[in-house]
């Protein structure tokens, strides 16, 4: 226990990176996800298929594989990313797929009469989408987005494999230094739990 208290600043720094990665990835994921959702609902056949393939591939492959592809795989093509940058990119792309599903569901749960009412007053499809549908869809999307956010918070632990010193890797480093496991892993477990429940 003393060991944990002694190393709290180090663990807190890890927690800071965990949160940072979560928030940054969530931010870009929201943008990617909104675009993908609109592409799937309103795009032409080609755009729709591209968006659908994106969602299907991301949801059908382990995030760990996605992370190593971005960090290690791209090196083969001369693209060397820093670990943190690779983490942002891989996780933003990952979360975008889940966000797009949340948005798509939300947009589709706005009753059809809303679009019709807007079109009947002379709005274009785009205006109806922006002024009438999306503001309502955002409300429907908040609960699933909250779940996605918590999921992302936990998933960031995966980027410890590419040497980003977030919370998980902070604990691993301490374990390697002191040769005790439980206190550190238990502590970060509690820290993840606290963060998940306080957003």
């Amino acid at each position: 226990m003393d060991l944990v208290l002694e190393n709290i600043p180090f663990l807190l720094k890890g927690a800071y990176y965990t949160l940072l990665i979560t928030v940054v990835s969530m931010f870009f994921g929201l943008i990617i996800g909104l675009l993908a959702a609109i592409a799937r609902i309103k795009g032409n056949r080609f755009v729709r298929n591209v968006a659908r393939a994106y969602v299907s591939i991301i949801r059908g492959t382990p995030p760990l594989v996605q992370i190593v592809i971005v960090y290690y795989g791209l090196v083969d093509y001369g693209i060397e990313l820093g670990p943190l940058t690779a983490a942002y990119i891989a996780l933003s792309i990952n979360i975008g797929a889940y966000v797009s599903e949340a948005f798509r569901g939300a947009i589709q749960s706005v009753p059809k009469g809303q679009t019709e009412a807007a079109l009947a007053t002379g709005m274009t499809e785009k205006q109806a989408m922006r002024r009438i549908i999306i503001p309502q869809a955002i409300r429907y999307a908040i609960p699933p987005l909250g779940n996605t956010f918590v999921g992302m918070l936990k998933e960031t632990s995966l980027v410890s494999v590419i040497a980003v010193t977030e919370l998980m890797r902070s604990a691993q480093l301490l374990v390697a230094q002191y040769y005790v496991y439980m206190p550190f892993y238990l502590s970060i477990g509690i820290m993840y739990w606290l963060m998940s429940n306080s957003y």
């Binding site: 809303q114 009412a117 009947a120 007053t121 002379g122 709005m123 205006q127 503001p135």
Partner: peptide, 25 residues
């Protein structure tokens, strides 16, 4: 057009429902 189910915009106040189209369109 007036619909059986009204289809008012639930996220807008009554007056915003009425001003929406003139402002946007």
């Amino acid at each position: 057009m007036v619909f059986q189910q009204f289809n008012l915009y639930p996220h807008k106040t009554v007056i915003e429902n009425v001003t929406e189209a003139p402002i946007v369109v």
